[in-house]
Write a protein that binds this DNA or RNA. Sequence first.
DNA 1: TTGGCGTCCTGGAGGC
DNA 2: TGCCTCCAGGACGCCA
Length: 264
Amino acid sequence: MPELPEVETIRVALEPLLVGRRIERTEILDERLTRPEPPAAVAQQLTGERVECVQRRGKYLLLRLESGRVLLVHLRMTGSFRSENSLHTRAVLELDDGTSVTYRDVRRFGTWLLLDEEDVDPYLTARLGDEPLERGFTLARLAGRRAPVKAAILDQRTVPGLGNIYADEALWRARVHPLRPAGSLDDEELARLRRGIRNALRAGIARQGATLSDYAAPDGTAGSMQREFKVYGRSGEPCDRCGTPIEKTRVAGRGTWFCPSCQS
DNA sequence: TTGGCGTCCTGGAGGC
DNA sequence: TGCCTCCAGGACGCCA
């Protein structure tokens, strides 16, 4: 599931493939991908454009184009880019240097949205809070919330880019139980959680993300963060900190792993 | 306004 | 071996 570290890894890998290249031909094979816009209309508008830069906001990839338009890509569960053809290809960008970049998505949840420049910020600002790795990031939105802290930090307006895996890892680092009401955390716990989120995401970026099933960088390289997981997917294994077996529960409909002893 | 749940979607695992 | 059911989860809409 591409979260911030995986999307950032993809962004870095896409830059040398796309930046400065003109799109000679666009093929969109899945009509869900560009809904509500018809794929043919989006393909037509992309063709002929030159890619100026590839950016990231939360889990969104932004392909800024010569015309000022921006292609907003959300990979959701299983979306990824490849520099070679692969199974479950949903779109192909053929470039002016003879190469092509393929978009694949097994579960077809991913979305491509082509926006005018002036519409990008309002679109993202309505959905995303401050970037968690930037200096100004705070957890102020947790104040007064009764929802479980795990559900609250999965809200992209609170922590853009955080998903199920890194939420569990961050809560373990912060020694905070995932079912604690978000508004019950004191200042020290909030500071620990802020550090936990940032450190978990940084660790993920440093290891080029986590490869569990589908995720890989555009050149097919797998990430290695899954080897560093402290709780995610580790039911019954001893906690690295206290040795207590890791337990699994459900929070906000998501599988949630935690240490019942040192996360309070 | 908040929180919980259903929906979309497909491949893989497990049970029979 | 083949069929069936369940599970995984990001974002969004709906409802209480």
